[in-house]
Design a protein around this nucleic acid. Structure first.
Length: 443
RNA sequence: UCCGCGGUAGCUCAAUGGUAGAGCAUGCGGCUGUUAACCGCAGGGUUGCAGGUUCGAUCCCUGCCCGCGGAGCCA
């Protein structure tokens, strides 16, 4: 019996995407996408199609097509979906360098009046329409760079013997005991919280697998209202057995260099769309400057900032320090009092912790926070008491010191801050598809 | 929570104590090379809400609501 295979084998997916038009010069192709913009000149229409992969200008000339085709082109409104068939030609006058000489235009769906016009809009309006705003050129460029950064992060660790180790999102207590967390009722077990960090769990993973990394969303219920904060953000946290603070810093700088160089190599077009000054990114090469907290305080004082040893740096302080260098700067050995309970104190100076923060250049602030972890059971018990943390919640964590404790270190990198810095954004809300902020959880 | 700024057409903004204006978007018309195209015409408004002052308030005053930016906290 004859079977009509074509009925089952042919879907509706496009056979050609805009980014590949260079391979089809002189040939007729059919593209599917949305109308980005339209200009018309009587008998001549220019349709700018976007299909997610790129943009191409399609020329519809009344004399060359059926009346119905020309009418279809006329009916298309901004963001209407359509299919266009035509011959690909090289055209320097056209954006992207190629152009489609249309022979057929099929309407898929006419868009209603599209709210995001080619003129300027306010940020509130754009965020209200975030689900549509992601179709805009700059947003597409940012989202593509974000995806490339995520791939660079995974590639970096996967190719260096790290194992992905997923921590829980729902936790029974605050990991570090400092931040305000999102609270929930967990059946009959009482209150539970959305995680603020996977780090403590990652330590368990490092004791099992040697080198691990966690990568996922984390949550902070702080009422932060600045361009540097989101309530939901992504963090990658490597954790390594038998790494001290120096090893930790070596890894952090190699990691950042790798991410930036990947974006520079693969995302030139997107960086250009964002008008990013790439010479600033090209500087991001090892070695990064390493200064102690104490040296950073002296630097601030020299710059006329009346900063007291023992305080934590604010955003303005970080910017001042960052300005001194053309690449990320690593600040290590912070006062232990302003750092988390699990950070190991420096045996040579117990007033400071073996911690490191990496400050991005150009005022982007802290993108990495890390440390060597306290591996001594007794010291860790002391810290937990000092911080007034409930020891019972940390028994499992203390077990990691009871059963074959080793020196170990790790750090956390904030994904959106990294995206924001590399893209040169002025607010974190554009670095994630759907930002969650104190006064906004929609769309 | 504190400090500062704002709310006028679908969007971005302007204006004056005396009938509310532009650009974009939308509709119609024009143009064979446009690049946020351009030109002409048209529709589109309870000026955030509630009071007060005034002959008259979008404008001045009071309160409230909403938003934005910054601080603290942090990635």
């Amino acid at each position: 019996m004859a079977v009509n295979f074509s009925k089952w084998c042919m879907g509706i997916r496009p056979s050609v995407y805009v980014k590949d038009l260079g391979k089809h010069v002189g040939k007729e192709v059919t593209l599917k996408g949305w109308l980005y913009n339209k200009r018309s000149s009587g008998k001549l229409k220019f349709l700018i199609m976007r299909d997610g992969s790129g943009y191409v200008q399609c020329v519809v000339f009344k004399g060359n097509v059926a009346d119905e085709v020309f009418e279809n082109a006329d009916k298309l409104t901004q963001e209407s979906s359509f299919e266009v068939t035509g011959k690909v030609k090289v055209e320097p006058r056209s954006v992207g360098g190629y152009e489609l000489d249309a022979t057929d235009v099929k309407i898929i769906s006419i868009a209603q009046e599209y709210p995001i016009t080619p003129k300027e809009h306010g940020i509130e309006f754009l965020i209200d329409n975030r689900h549509l705003w992601v179709r805009s050129k700059k947003q597409i460029a940012i989202l593509k760079i974000r995806a490339r950064i995520v791939k660079a992060i995974r590639d970096f660790f996967d190719s260096r013997g790290f194992v992905l180790f997923d921590p829980p999102i729902i936790t029974p207590n605050a990991c570090e005991g400092t931040s305000t967390l999102f609270e929930m009722e967990y059946f009959d077990l009482g209150k539970a919280y959305l995680t603020q960090s996977g780090q403590l769990y990652a330590e368990s993973g490092a004791m099992a697998l040697g080198k691990v990394y966690t990568f996922g969303p984390t949550f902070r219920a702080e009422k932060s209202k600045t361009r540097r904060h989101l309530t939901e953000f992504w963090m990658v946290e490597p954790e390594m057995a038998f790494y001290d603070l120096d090893d930790d810093m070596d890894l952090a700088e190699e990691f950042l260099e790798y991410i930036v160089q990947c974006v520079l190599t693969d995302k030139q077009e997107e960086l250009k769309e964002l008008e990013r000054d790439t010479t600033k990114l090209e500087c991001v090469k090892r070695p990064f400057p390493r200064i102690s907290y104490t040296e950073a305080v002296e630097l601030l004082k020299k710059k006329g900032n009346d900063f007291q040893w023992g305080n934590d740096f604010g955003g303005a302080d970080e910017t001042l320090i960052g300005e001194e260098f053309d690449r990320p700067v690593m600040i290590h050995r912070y006062p232990s009092e302003i750092k988390a309970f699990y950070m190991k104190r420096d045996p040579e100076n117990p007033k400071v912790a073996l911690a490191v923060d990496v400050i991005a250049p150009e005022g982007y602030g802290e993108i990495i926070g890390g440390s060597q972890r306290e591996d001594n059971l007794d010291f860790l018990l002391e810290r937990i008491k000092e911080h007034n943390l409930p020891q019972s919640f940390f028994e499992w964590y203390l077990d990691l010191r009871r059963f074959g404790s080793v020196p170990h270190s790790g750090f956390g990198l904030g994904l959106e801050r990294t995206v924001s810095w590399i893209c040169g954004l002025d607010h974190l809300r554009e670095a994630i598809p759907f930002p969650r902020m104190i006064y906004r959880n929609t769309p």
